[in-house]
């Protein structure tokens, strides 16, 4: 008995090793389950450049966002007891808040945009991915990406409320209204209703410093690169509202930027990009690979279900085997499926 066990375990160990080798090869080559081709930015895609060093924390964007999208004021539970309905103090984006300004704090918080003993503001809302996970996971096409502007929109009439967009979004952006009996998913849709009227997204419209800057993604990318290339401290004319929109800008010294434009490559690229004075991970902007996880997931699905060939072939084989064995079974012995009803 013991011998047998040893043999079994030896076999098991052998199988583990063999499988390890078998698994290692394709994983390294990533050939079989390679991600599907990454999606590309529509040429006329609109986006936003958020410059954290320009943000003054006035929350005008938060307030304008609520107004433009008809969202109610919100308080964290700890404050709701005494200021419910009188003051908007959302802790994070939620079912009732599409945009929020949060703060990074360290030590004495003496200076803005400094990692040690400093603080920094960061705006949080949908980044409008080039290759969005939310669209990839949505079973009913409730999330869509506009083919021209690239804005990721949500259609509550299609939505079944499964919340996989919340689950799968690398930035935790879509938010379900858990406190409503008939809740829906809320997310920033870049004020596409205002854009349709030729207006700017509310947050970019009101931003007093141009920290939230609207524009074509291409132009914004160039603007961001100009800022990154400029010497910190030199005076720079910062545009406000829309890049190239003709509004008066303002002159201010160039901030001490981190040499990284967040959103250029993250998760396959996003249409909202961030320039920050402190490392982005300190501002709750996660470290992400250059490809979208949607591409990984869809690559797998497309490999396994390409033209439904593999499932159909499997089905054919299964039916054949099942038929054969039900025949054998009929011949060899009793089976309840073949047995004549006892009560008849």
């Amino acid at each position: 008995m013991d011998l047998e066990r040893r043999r079994f375990l030896r076999g098991a160990a052998g199988a583990v090793t063999a499988a390890a080798a078998a698994v290692a090869a394709p994983v390294n080559e990533a050939a079989a389950f390679g991600p599907r081709e990454p999606k590309t930015l529509p040429p006329k895609a609109v986006g936003m450049l958020y410059d954290s060093t320009l943000c003054i924390g006035c929350k005008a964007c938060v307030s304008a966002c609520k107004q433009a999208n008809g969202m109610p004021a919100e308080q964290p539970a700890s404050l709701a007891a005494w200021n419910e309905g009188t003051w908007d103090a959302a802790e994070d984006i939620s079912g009732k808040t599409l945009n929020v300004i949060r703060v990074y704090q360290n030590g004495t918080m003496a200076e803005k945009d400094r990692e040690q003993d400093g603080y920094a503001f960061v705006k949080r809302h949908c980044l409008h991915c080039v290759d969005p996970s939310c669209i990839s996971v949505c079973p009913v096409s409730a999330m869509r990406k506009d083919p021209v502007t690239g804005i990721v929109t949500h259609n509550p009439d299609a939505c079944i409320g499964c919340r996989y967009c919340v689950y799968g979004c690398p930035f935790n952006v879509p938010q379900y209204q858990f406190d409503e009996p008939f809740g829906q998913i809320s997310k920033c849709q870049f004020c596409n209703h205002l854009q349709a009227e030729g207006k700017l997204p509310a947050c970019c419209d009101v931003c007093p410093t141009g920290a939230s800057l609207f524009g074509l993604v291409e132009d914004l990318q160039a603007e961001a690169e100009r800022r990154l290339a400029a010497q910190p401290g030199t005076l720079y004319e910062f545009p406000r509202g829309k890049l190239g929109g003709g509004r008066p800008g303002h002159e201010a010294p160039i901030g001490h930027y981190q040499p990284h434009l967040y959103g250029e490559k993250e998760a396959g690229g996003t249409q909202v990009r961030y320039l920050t004075g402190v490392p982005h991970e300190k501002l709750g902007l996660p470290e992400l690979p250059d490809h979208s996880y949607a591409a990984v997931s869809e690559g797998m699905q497309h490999t396994l279900y390409k033209g439904m060939i593999a499932p159909l072939a499997l089905f054919g084989g299964l039916v054949f085997l099942a038929r054969r064995s039900s025949k054998t079974y009929r011949d060899e012995g009793p089976a309840h499926i073949d047995e004549e009803d006892s009560s008849s």
């Binding site: 669209i135 990839s136 996971v137 949505c138 079973p139 009913v140 096409s141 409730a142 509550p156 009439d157 299609a158 939505c159 079944i160 409320g161 499964c162 919340r163 996989y164 379900y176 209204q177 008939f182 809740g183 829906q184 998913i185 949607a294 997931s297 869809e298 699905q301 497309h302 279900y305």
Partner: peptide
């Protein structure tokens, strides 16, 4: 019970809403 918008659940069966890239769609 878990679906947030259960009254829309039949949309899963509506071809014009189908999203074949979605793993959840396939699972459902």
């Amino acid at each position: 019970i878990d679906l947030g918008r259960y009254w829309n659940a039949f949309n899963l069966l509506m071809p014009w809403y189908a999203q074949i890239n979605s793993v959840i769609f396939e699972v459902a």
